[in-house]
Each structure stands twice: as C-alpha cells, then as structure tokens.
C-alpha cells in the first residue's frame, strides 16, 4: 500500500509537471483531442489555401465587377456606387472639377457619424481638433502633418476633400478602401464643422444662441 501511495503521488506530480496549469502561455498550436469536424474542407477568409493560384482564400473580384449595393441617399436622390456621380467621385459630372458642396443632406446624424469616423481614421495624425497635432506629431514620428485649418484646406471645395480622403495626397495614404463613400462625406461634413468652430464669427450663430456667448 505504501508503494501505491508513493506511486500515486509521483504520477500526479508528474502529470502536473508535464501539463502545467490553466492559463499559462504557450507557443505551440493547441492540441485537438477530438477534432470532429472542427477542420472542414472549406475556405476561411484571409487564410492560406492551395485552391487558388495565388495561394489565398480571399480573392479580389474580377476586374469590372460591380458590387450589388444599396444606393447612397444624396440630397438629389439615390445614387448607386457605380454611377458617374459627384457623390462617388467628388467631381462635377463629365469634368474633373471638384463639386463645391457635400452631396449628402447635412443632418446631425451625419455629423455624429462623421465625428466617429474622423476620430477613428483621421485623428491619429491630424488630431482631434484637426490642427495637425495628432499622436504621430506628439511622439515626433511624423515630420509633416497637414493642419486642416490652413487657408488652402479651408478653401478647398468639399469634393476635393472627398477626393483626398479617397485617393490620398503627398504622404497621406488612400482611405477609399476602408472608409465607405457615405462615411467619407460624413467626415468632410464634420471637418467643415471643426473648421467653422475656429473660423466662425458671432454673427454666424442664430440670435437665440448668440446671447449665450460671453
């Protein structure tokens, strides 16, 4: 019996020594003891795959593919993303002149959305106040970040701001792939609000709000 207890204690200790405790960090892939149907012959997104020649599961659509999409509701009616329209390009139809005004109806919901998207995508460099003092400037990692209150940017038509967000300019990369068309116009609208907050005159306010100014 004594031998049994000794053996038992040793084996318990051995198991604990070998397997360790819950929650400890490990590098090797987890062990699947009963991997019933856990790994199926199907493609998961952004994974390697031998099925396609370029070795990836996520494939780009064929060139010329038109997304089946919900139209964007502009102030002048619904527009599909494949149409040659100012809301998609930032240009006046048939030209490369930028449209002067945001084609989306400016609502408080649009500005709220713009604020959220601006904070996510733009504020890291341009700063929450759009003065170019984002985190990349603060840590001294980026030499040139545009101050969006510069006269040249304030004077840009809305369409040009949209175009720059979509395609990038100078050192700024394109954001067209990650910020949707409506969100880009929402950001433009919010940016205009930020600029007005700095440039506005007391006369711009409705009379009932003007009295609140000191």
């Amino acid at each position: 019996m004594r031998y049994f207890f000794a053996l038992f204690a040793v084996s318990v200790a051995a198991v604990i020594a070998l397997l360790g405790f819950r929650g400890s960090h490990f590098r090797k892939p987890p062990l699947y003891i009963f991997p019933d149907m856990e790994f199926q012959l199907k493609l998961r997104p952004q994974a390697p795959s031998g099925f396609f020649p370029n070795g990836r599961t996520s494939q780009l659509p064929v060139p010329g593919t038109i997304a089946r999409a919900v139209p964007v509701q502009t102030a002048s009616g619904p527009v599909f993303p494949f149409e040659d329209a100012p809301v998609n390009t930032g240009w006046v139809v048939g030209t490369t002149n930028f449209v002067e005004h945001n084609p989306l109806p400016i609502t408080s919901a649009l500005l709220k959305r713009g604020q959220q998207r601006y904070t996510i995508n733009c504020a890291p460099c341009h700063g929450g106040l759009a003065d170019g003092n984002g985190i990349t400037r603060k840590i001294g990692a980026m030499a040139v970040v545009a101050n969006l209150h510069d006269k040249r940017i304030v004077e840009m038509p809305d369409g040009e701001l949209f175009y720059v967000i979509t395609h990038g300019r100078n050192l700024m990369g394109p954001y067209g792939a990650q910020v949707s068309i409506e969100d880009r116009w929402a950001v433009v609208a919010y940016l205009r609000a930020l600029q007005l907050a700095r440039l506005g005159e007391p006369e711009d306010l409705p009379p009932q709000l003007r009295t609140l100014l000191k």
């Binding site: 819950r22 960090h25 490990f26 590098r27 987890p30 062990l31 003891i33 995508n121």
Partner: peptide
Amino acid sequence: YSRVGYKPIQPVAFSHNTHVNQLGMDCRY
C-alpha cells in the same frame, strides 16, 4: 486549459499595447 494562453510567435512583432494603449488608436482603424 487547451486554448487559453496560446501565444504563437508572429511573423512581425506587432504590439497592441503600443498602438492602442499608448498611442490611443481605435480598434476599427
């Protein structure tokens, strides 16, 4: 036990702590 703690070596030593906690970036960037 079998999954919690899995910390594989990644091809690039990307730090969420640096980007999110220190620099304040949003997950959705």
